[in-house]
Write a protein that binds this DNA or RNA. Structure first.
Lengths: 346, 346
DNA sequence: ATTCTCAACGATAACGTTTGCGTGTTGGTA
DNA sequence: TACCAACACGCAAACGTTATCGTTGAGAAT
C-alpha cells in the first residue's frame, strides 16, 4: 500500500526544490517553460493531487461544512441535505454529517468533534432532548469560537445566528382553511406534545384558523400524542389513540395531522371504521414525503420544501464563511409552505 | 470573531515553550505538577481544543470515513448511513458524505475531492451511470493510492476490495416461493432493465424459483420498466404500464415487484381495476421502507437490513484502515434477507 | 571537588503546502 | 570590461501539533 506522492518526493526525484515544484504545478511564470513541462508531466504520471489537509492547515479553512441533524432516515432531513449538498458542491465545499439521534449528549459530542477544525461552519437542526433541556451552551460556545452556524426548522430565538425556518403557523392555517373551505364542520387535529416548537406552532395555526372562521375549538378534538409514538415500534398505540378519538367523536369530518405518519395512520384507522375518504372524512397532513404521494388515497399535505431550505441555509452559511467583516447582522429567512392537494380532500 | 486558541498562544501567555504546553495538556510526567496545573487551568479557561487538521496532517490519518452514494432521499441508503455512522462514531470516526446523483462525473469528482486527504477510506455504492459505462478507473486509482474501499449493494467483481452485498437472488426466491406457497398460479414480476446487477439478480431469482416448482416462465409476465420511471415524476407512466400488464393478463394472481414503489403502485392500480388484495392478487415487494409499512394494505416485502449492511461495511473498513499489514485478502460478506409478511399476502 | 543522576523544561524536526524574497546565472548594453 | 536587468530557481517561514532529543541546574554520590 503505497502512500500518496508529495511535492517533496517529486522534488527529490527531479532534483529541484519543493518550492519550484509547487510553483510549476500552479503554473507560475517564475518557472521556465521547460521545467514546468517536465514537472507537470511527472506529476501527472504519478497522479499527484495536493493534500487537502495540508492546505486546510495552511489556509485555515477546510472547505467543508458540517450538518448536524437529529436523524437521517427521514424524508424531510434527507431533502434538506440534498439541497445543502447541491449548493455546497457547486461552491467547492464538501459536506460532513453528524447525527444526534435526538440526544443532547450526542449533539454536544458531535459538535465538539466537528468544531475541532474539521469544518468551516455548521448547518443544524436541534434535537428534541436539547429543546427539552433548554441547554444551548454548546451552540454559543461554537459561535464564540468564531464558527458560523445556520439553524433550520427546529430553532431557538435565544441564539444569535442565521436561521431558515418553515412558516409552520401559516402552513397549518392553509391546511385547516382548506378543510373549512371544503365544508368540514368538525375538524380535529392530531399533534404532538408541546415542547417542540414546530408542533406547538402547527397547533396554534389550527386554533387560529378555526377562530378566524368563528368555529369553536373543542379540547376533545385536539389529540396530543406522545412523540415516541412517531417511532415505528409504537404504531399500534398510535392507531388505538386515533381510533378512540374517532369513535368518541363520530361527528369529525376533517382531520389535520401534523405529520405524514399521523395522517396516513388516521386514514388507515378511519377506513377500518368504515369511513370513506374523502367523502366521510377529509385528511390533510404536513410534510410532503413518499408516504403522502403513494398512500391510497394520496394525501393532501403541506409541503415544506425541504430541498429549498437546504439550499438557502447553505447559501447563507457560505456567504458568512467567506465574508471578511466580522459583525454582520443575523438573518431569519422564512420558507413559504405550499398546500399540495391530492385525493384525501375533496 | 476571535479565532480558536492555540498551543502557541498559551505558551506565549504563560511564558513557557510550546512543547511544554503540549506535554502538560497530555499529562506527561515530564512536567511538574505545578506547571501542569497552571497550564491546564489556563487551557480550560480559554476552552482549548486541539486542532484536528494539524493532528491529521501530523498523524497522516483523518479519523473520518467517506460515504459515496447515488442518492440520499432513499430509505435504504439512509438506513445504511445510519448503520455506518453508528459504528464509526463508536470507534471515534466521523462520516463525510458525497452524493453522485447516479452520475458518473459527479461520482468521479466527489471521489477525487474526498480522496485528496480528507478521509481514511471509502464506503460506496456505485452509480447507475458508472455501471452502464463500466468505467471503473477512479476506483482502481483510489485503491492504488493506498486508500481502502468497501463497496455495498451495487458492486462489481472486477474491483479488488471488500464488499458487502445483499443476497438479491435468494431474497427474490424467498418472495416468489411465498407466493407459490400461497397457491398463486400466475406470478408476474415487475422489474427494471438489466444493466443494474441488483435488478438482474432479482429477476433471475424469480425465474429460478418458478423453475424449481416446475412452473413455466412466460415472457409476457415479466414487465421490465425503465429505471427513470422510479422517479416520482413518471409515476403516471409506471401506472399505465402496470395497468396494461394486469389487463392483458387477467389470470395474474401474484406479483413480485423489485422495489417498494413498484409494489405499492401495483396495489394501487389493481385496486382501481377492482381487484381485492390479497384475495384476488397477492403482492410482494423488495426493500422494507416506510411505504411498505404504512401502505394499505401493508406490504409483504423482502428486507435487506440496510442498517446492518452499514454496520458491517464500517466494521470492515475501519479494520482495514487500522491494520498494519498491507496485503490482506479481500472479503465479500453477504447479508441475509428476510421476508417480512404483512397484509398484501395471505 | 568532581562526577553523576535526575527532574523539568526548551529546541527542533516533521507532516505537506504556498509564497515572498533572496540569489545566482544569463544575456545584453554602455 | 563593467554594469544591470531579467530570468529561473532555492530558501525559509508559516499553519498547529507531537515526539525525540538536548540542555540546564540542583542535589547526591564518590
Amino acid at each position: 500500500m503505497k502512500r500518496k506522492i508529495t511535492l517533496k518526493q517529486i522534488a527529490k526525484e527531479l532534483d529541484v526544490s519543493i518550492g519550484t515544484v509547487s510553483k510549476a504545478l500552479r503554473n507560475s511564470k517564475e518557472i521556465s517553460e521547460e521545467t514546468k513541462e517536465k514537472i507537470q508531466a511527472f506529476a501527472k504520471f504519478y497522479n499527484y493531487k495536493p493534500n487537502n489537509i495540508a492546505l486546510s492547515l495552511k489556509n485555515r479553512k477546510t472547505k467543508t461544512i458540517g450538518i448536524l441533524i437529529p436523524e437521517i432516515v427521514h424524508h424531510f432531513f434527507s431533502k434538506v441535505i440534498q439541497g445543502i449538498e447541491q449548493v455546497a458542491n457547486k461552491k467547492g465545499y464538501n459536506v460532513i454529517i453528524g447525527l444526534s439521534n435526538e440526544s443532547f449528549d450526542k449533539e454536544v459530542i458531535n459538535m465538539e468533534m466537528l468544531a475541532g477544525g474539521s469544518i468551516d461552519g455548521f448547518i443544524l437542526s436541534i434535537s428534541k432532548e436539547t429543546l427539552l433541556q433548554q441547554d444551548y451552551h454548546h451552540f454559543n460556545e461554537t459561535i464564540n469560537q468564531g464558527m458560523p452556524i445556520v439553524m433550520f426548522d427546529r430553532v431557538v430565538s435565544d441564539i444569535r445566528c442565521d436561521k431558515v425556518i418553515v412558516d409552520d403557523l401559516e402552513g397549518a392555517k392553509k391546511a385547516v382553511n382548506k378543510l373549512i373551505e371544503n365544508h368540514c364542520k368538525h375538524i380535529a387535529i392530531i399533534t404532538t406534545k408541546d415542547y417542540v416548537s414546530v408542533g406547538r406552532l402547527r397547533t396554534q395555526g389550527y386554533i387560529e384558523a378555526l377562530n378566524a372562521h368563528e368555529m369553536h375549538t373543542q379540547s376533545d378534538l385536539i389529540l396530543k400524542v406522545d412523540d415516541k409514538l412517531a417511532s415505528e415500534d409504537y404504531i399500534d398505540v398510535l392507531e388505538e389513540e386515533i381510533k378512540a378519538l374517532l369513535l368518541m367523536n363520530p361527528e369529525i369530518d376533517g382531520v389535520f395531522a401534523v405529520n405524514e405518519l399521523y395522517a396516513v395512520t388516521t386514514m388507515k384507522v378511519a377506513r377500518k371504521l368504515g369511513k370513506k375518504i374523502p367523502d366521510d372524512l377529509q385528511v390533510v397532513g404536513f410534510t410532503d414525503g413518499v408516504l403522502s404521494r403513494h398512500a391510497t388515497p394520496s394525501l393532501t399535505t403541506v409541503s415544506q420544501h425541504g430541498k429549498k431550505i437546504g439550499e438557502v441555509a447553505a447559501g447563507l452559511l457560505i456567504e458568512k464563511i467567506e465574508s471578511e467583516s466580522l459583525d454582520e447582522p443575523v438573518r431569519t429567512i422564512v420558507i413559504e409552505t405550499e398546500l399540495i392537494e391530492r385525493e384525501s380532500t375533496k
